[in-house]
């Protein structure tokens, strides 16, 4: 079980995140929390829910809790040449998911039908080894339930007969206000989402780890700063060097325009 599916899963469902338009609004993160609070891995426990304290090192310990999707903000580069990039991260449902193979109990597993990586909470002993094995920080330990939890790719939504068909997509995808999140079968090179990845140069995070993540990231597109178009002063208009506005106005004296 804890071994990866012997054959490449029939499908590789996953997400594609467009860093070019993500505004870092946290909508996907909160909506994920909301859906999953009553979902497959419920609850998404929060600690210090309405309080806080200061730890021994003087760092604040405010509220914290289980989230399957988290947004960082980065600045890349220096000075005005730098760029701010928002960066959502959730489980990447890796093809070579070592979080699964290290699991001693078989609680972690990768589905052979669609590649989704899940945790069976009834089997999990809370050894946390899977979280050590995940390069992407995608696993979340519920210290009250004492089991590991993680993004389920909304497995209780995407196949849910009780949800209208058009809405059978992950909660985070359905809620993203800018449309920066895409969902589909990344195992099929001809799927819409795979074509998008190809067209936009979608990439893997830390390919050197060898986990072959399913989720892909679309890089920020080069910023459009136009080839400098020069405003050609119209022949009649003045260059503004002549004192007084009067001369400048000549351009429009003959304008014959009808209301």
């Amino acid at each position: 079980m804890t071994s990866l599916p012997a054959q490449t899963p029939d499908r590789q469902l996953g997400l594609v995140i467009d860093l070019d338009i993500c505004v870092g609004c946290h909508a996907c993160a909160v909506n994920c929390k909301e859906w999953n609070s009553g979902g497959h891995s419920a609850p998404m426990t929060d600690w210090n829910a309405y309080g806080g304290e200061t730890d021994s090192e003087g760092q604040d310990e405010g509220a914290w809790g289980v989230w399957f999707n988290r947004i960082n903000a980065y600045e890349a580069g220096d000075g005005t040449a730098s760029q701010t990039v928002y960066f959502p991260r959730s489980c990447l449902h890796c093809a070579d998911a070592k979080c699964v193979t290290v699991c001693p109990t078989g609680a972690s597993y990768k589905r052979s039908s669609d590649g989704i990586v899940l945790v069976d909470a009834d089997l999990c002993i809370g050894c946390k080894l899977c979280s050590w094995a995940c390069p992407y920080g995608a696993r979340e330990y519920d210290a009250t339930d004492k089991v590991m939890k993680k993004c389920t790719l909304c497995v209780d939504r995407i196949y849910n007969d009780n949800v209208p068909e058009a809405e059978r997509i992950p909660a985070c995808v359905s809620t993203c206000p800018v449309g920066a999140r895409h969902y589909g079968d990344l195992g099929d090179p001809n799927s819409e989402i795979s074509l998008l990845v190809a067209a936009r140069g979608g990439y893997d995070l830390m390919p050197e780890m060898g986990y072959r993540p399913t989720n892909k990231y679309l890089p920020p597109r080069p910023r459009q700063v136009a080839e400098v178009v020069d405003l050609n002063p119209s022949p009649a208009a003045n260059d503004g060097t002549t004192a007084g506005a009067g001369n400048n106005l000549l351009a429009w004296v003959d304008a014959m325009l009808s209301r």
Partner: peptide
């Protein structure tokens, strides 16, 4: 007094009931 731990939603997850 507000709760220290928030477990809203646990009530909807039937599978966690009777957990060992």
């Amino acid at each position: 007094q507000p709760p220290a731990v928030n477990r809203y939603g646990a009530q909807f997850n039937k599978s966690t009931e009777g957990d060992d």
